[in-house]
Write a protein that binds this DNA or RNA. Structure first.
Length: 271
DNA sequence: TCCCAGGCGGTAG
DNA sequence: CTACCGCATGGG
């Protein structure tokens, strides 16, 4: 187990922020678990003390970048306009959120599923997808499954995916999997792309990936911190609080975390 | 029950 | 370019 003291870090807020649909609270209080790719992790937190139940090696090589642990999020919060009381409150409410570095392939598929869907049902869809097509993990008794690789999903038909409850998104999953496997869109190249706009444009070549889903992938997998996904909730906030336009200039380069503070504030804090 | 959800692709004007 | 429509499903 690794124990670290962290500022601006909340497992609860990260879990509730809805970036990762495979992280959830366990029966134990203040304890969470997560499957990312084929890696399982258990975590717990008391105040600023966070426990990661894994080896030193795995923590340093995998979970530090995954949770963006080395970054100082107070510098993002400090950039918020003190006269913007809405954004100030939002950032205060979600000050422990982190922008994760999730696996690109996994993020593409999960956010394909997320469109025009509610978070509870998205989690269910992804659970069923993993149980049906993912490799079973080495666990003591519990049935845990890795996220299916592109090769795992290659055999999935649209009919099968519809039977799993994916709805009309089934076709997007089939077509996108094929595009990736055939190399029409390259995951490696996407990882290497330096500029957000280029990655976004390339992602939008995939079936079922529009502006919003591309922005989610850019932000939650590729860590392009300027991506600003506009969903129905963000749209409402922009219409209500930022009638004269969102201050994009001020938040250039950090718009992604600002978006997360707003999203979390609307969905969790206000309830 | 009935509305709606982290939208997208396609078509019409 | 903008405006609309159909798409699947189940959670609240």
């Amino acid at each position: 187990m690794i124990t670290v003291e962290l500022d601006n870090f909340s497992l609860k807020q990260i879990c509730e922020s809805g970036q990762c649909f495979r992280m959830r609270e366990t029966e134990e209080t203040d304890t969470y678990e997560l499957i990312a790719g084929d890696k399982y992790l258990k975590m717990s937190q008391q105040g600023s003390i966070v426990n990661f139940y894994c080896s030193d090696m795995e923590f340093i090589c995998y979970w530090v970048p995954y949770f963006d642990i080395d970054a100082d999020y107070s510098r993002y919060i400090e950039k918020i306009n003190p006269r913007d009381s809405y954004l100030r409150k939002a950032a205060e409410c979600g000050s422990g959120i982190r922008i994760l570095r999730q696996d690109l392939w996994e993020t593409i598929i999960t956010f394909l599923i997320s469109q025009q869907n509610n978070i509870a049902r998205i989690r269910g869809c992804i659970d069923r997808l993993c149980a049906r097509y993912g490799e079973k993990l080495e666990t003591d008794g519990r049935e845990l499954y890795a996220f299916p690789t592109p090769e795992n999903l290659a055999c999935a038909t649209e009919t099968e995916l519809r039977e799993l409850g994916m709805g009309y998104r089934a076709r997007y999953i089939v077509d996108t999997t094929r595009s990736i496997l055939e190399g029409d869109v390259s995951l490696e190249k996407l990882y290497q792309m330096k500029y957000y706009r280029n990655a976004r444009k390339e992602l939008m070549r995939l079936s079922g990936v529009g502006e919003k889903v591309a922005d989610c992938i850019c932000l939650f997998a590729l860590h392009h911190m300027d991506a600003f996904p506009v969903d129905t909730h963000i749209r409402q906030v922009l219409d209500e609080h930022y009638r004269r336009g969102f201050p994009n200039r001020r938040y250039h380069g950090i718009r992604g975390i600002i978006q997360q503070y707003i999203f979390y504030y609307e969905l969790v804090c206000r309830e």
